[in-house]
Design a protein around this nucleic acid. Structure first.
Lengths: 180, 180
DNA sequence: CGCGCGGTTGAAGAACCTCAATTCGGGTGG
DNA sequence: CCACCCGAATTGAGGTTCTTCAACCGCGCG
């Protein structure tokens, strides 16, 4: 479990490009599948300096015997992880670059706020454009262009490793995220 | 759990288009998340006549108390489901239409063979091109074109609701699936 | 026979990519 | 303190992939 810093789970395709499966921020769990299968399926790369805490799978299984509710918690984590992945699948399948980027940023902001790492309209942002591109199924060049368009239309800007949302309304609008 | 026939799990996007999250064939489980959350998150649509068997979640939880290994089985199902979803994410993010379609068909063939529904080089194929398009993040028109190109290059053909793989080597090659 | 659904085909355009040159910014050594 | 350097971001031009729109075909069914 990541305690501080950012990381990315990713896979390679034969031509050498990467697909980032998920960005990990503090509180997120890497390699939950280790609870079931003893092999690491997906490489995890630290994107900043990080600190984390590791668990011994054997211990967890033992605790699971004493307290079955823990296992149900695992199930919960796992299903919500799948839910996130499926949401990303919809993004890659049916949304254009602008929407993908807006949703990506809105999602990160929501998750960071939940942990008190972001404030209402800004957050730390250590991601390279290449990493974002690998997450959204785009090229770094195109991410740059969309970022520029967001900057020019005063939706958001990135300065010195920090992202400022200047027009949350517009961002959520592009992202097609509707609050009630 | 689907016993016979085909189904699809999908979501809508605001503009009315769909994204198919997964195709279900006999042996697959729809709505595994119900074990955790009482609400249905993802609609499931039958694509053919189907038969299935339903489970009572309350019963399952009860059994889970008596036999904790059942809960671990759920975890297994859930992680492998996520693994599949992430594989599709890589397809949509980093592969072109030809590769996506080849991998889609190769995957279906593998799963159907596992259940004895397909033979070595052919399988039932009740899917509309629109459904395939919704699964692969393409348009029906483009699926038609890629299918035609496969037909013309003698990789596969579809006749009367059945798909025939005429050149498995070529199919797996396009799909970048390497057996050893 | 006609109707409707699914698939095919063509032409034109949009979205995104590739290649390549240039700029920016932060860190390092003189 | 400044000049340089390197990785990352920006910008431009041109190309490819996929989409959109629309017409047409084929086939099963009432």
């Amino acid at each position: 479990m990541l305690r501080s810093g950012w990381a990315a789970r990713f896979t390679h395709v034969p031509d050498g490009r990467r697909q980032v499966l998920s960005i990990l921020v503090p509180g997120d769990i890497a390699g939950a599948e280790l609870v079931i299968q003893p092999s690491i399926r997906v490489p995890v790369q630290a994107l900043t300096d990080i600190s984390y805490c590791a668990f011994d799978v054997a211990d967890l299984k033992e605790i699971g015997v004493e307290d079955p509710s823990l296992v149900w918690s695992f199930l919960d984590i796992c299903t919500s992880g799948r839910k996130d992945t499926e949401a990303r699948l919809v993004d890659l399948g049916r949304r254009n670059a602008e929407q993908r980027l807006a949703r990506f940023i809105a999602d990160l902001h929501r998750r960071l706020r939940r942990h008190g790492i972001a404030d209402e309209s800004s957050m730390p942002f250590p991601l390279r454009q290449q990493t974002i591109a690998d997450a959204l199924g785009l090229t770094q060049v195109h991410v740059s262009r969309v970022m520029s368009s967001f900057r020019e239309s005063n939706v958001l800007k990135v300065i010195g490793g920090r992202l400022f949302i200047k027009d949350m309304e517009a961002l959520l609008d592009i992202a097609e995220i509707y609050r009630r």
